[in-house]
Each structure stands twice: as C-alpha cells, then as structure tokens.
Amino acid sequence: MNWNPFKRKSVGAPTVVIQHDELNGALAVLAGAFGDGMTADQTGPGFTCAEADSVARVLALTGYKPEAVTWLEGHASGDEGDDSHFLYENDEGGEGHVMNADEIASYVEELAA
C-alpha cells in the first residue's frame, strides 16, 4: 500500500495537507504576482468583483495586506456604476466614484476580519 503522510481522506474531494514552508513560498509568489501594480492594472479589471475580492481576501488573511490593496486598486480602476468597488455614499457630486486608496485599505481590513 502506498501511504502518503501529506494526504488524508475526507468526505467528498480529498484534502491535501501541504507542508508549511511550501505553502508560505507559494503564497509569497502569489502575492508578488497579484500585488504587482502593472499586473493588477492590466488584469484586475478583467476579474469580477467577487473574484477580485477572493484573491484580495486570501492575500490579506495570509499577511499580504499591501498586496491585497494594490490588487484591488488595479481591479477597481475598471469598476463603474453597479460594481462593488464603486461608491455613491459621501460623494458630493452624487455621481459616485471608484474607491480611493484609503477606502480600499479599509475594505481590505474588513475582508481580513
């Protein structure tokens, strides 16, 4: 019998247990990619708000909050009207605006809570 100490059975799909150092390394690479301003600006608007929030949440929960903010700034640059990162509250002109850096930073804190 081939026994693998990093796998365990579960109900439904199998769960893979990853060694801590491997996961940290993979998360650092992921944060570097999504937290890069050019990547965020060029690819972020192509993600739905829910998808972008999922990426930002993983980054924020794993200690990469600045990268999560950069990612959402790039994503939100393409938001308009009914999108999650477009606000009407506290907007003097009533036309709404894309979340600014401070608003995105607060939003990331909420995602990580």
Rank of each mutant, 00 (worst) to 15 (best):
E92D: 01
A31K: 04
L87K: 04
D21G: 10
T70K: 03
W3A: 12
S84H: 14
G44A: 13
F47L: 15
G81W: 01
W3G: 05
S10A: 14
E73G: 08
N24A: 05
G12K: 07
A113N: 14
D102P: 00
G94C: 09
E67I: 00
N24V: 08
Y88F: 09
K7V: 15
D36R: 04
K9C: 03
A112V: 12
D36K: 03
E92C: 00
E73I: 09
S77Q: 10
A52K: 14
S10F: 15
A52H: 15
V69C: 09
T43E: 14
A40G: 05
T39S: 09
A28Y: 00
G96F: 03
N90S: 10
L61R: 09
D102W: 10
V16M: 08
G46P: 07
A113R: 15
E92W: 03
K9P: 00
A60D: 05
H85M: 12
A26K: 10
T39Q: 06
G96K: 02
S106Y: 11
E22Q: 12
V69Y: 01
E22I: 15
E110I: 15
A112Y: 02
H85E: 09
L27M: 12
L72I: 12
L72M: 13
A31Q: 04
N100S: 03
Q19W: 11
D21W: 13
L59I: 10
G12H: 03
N90K: 10
A40I: 01
G12L: 14
E51L: 13
V11I: 06
M99L: 10
M99P: 06
H97A: 07
A40K: 03
V29Y: 11
V58G: 00
E80S: 12
V69E: 07
A31Y: 09
L87T: 13
L59K: 08
A105S: 12
V58S: 02
R8L: 15
A68E: 11
D91F: 04
T70P: 03
G25Q: 06
G78L: 05
E109T: 15
G12A: 08
K7P: 14
V55R: 01
D53R: 12
V58R: 00
N90I: 04
D83T: 15
E51F: 15
V17S: 11
N100C: 02
R57F: 11
G46K: 12
G94R: 04
L30Y: 13
M38I: 06
M99C: 06
E51T: 14
S84N: 14
G81L: 02
Y88P: 00
A76P: 13
G93W: 02
A105E: 08
E110A: 15
P66G: 05
G37F: 01
G25D: 06
G63Q: 00
P14T: 12
W71K: 08
R8I: 10
K9E: 08
H85R: 09
D91S: 06
Q19R: 11
T39I: 13
L59C: 08
K9D: 07
A33T: 02
E51A: 14
L59S: 06
N24G: 04
P45T: 03
V98C: 04
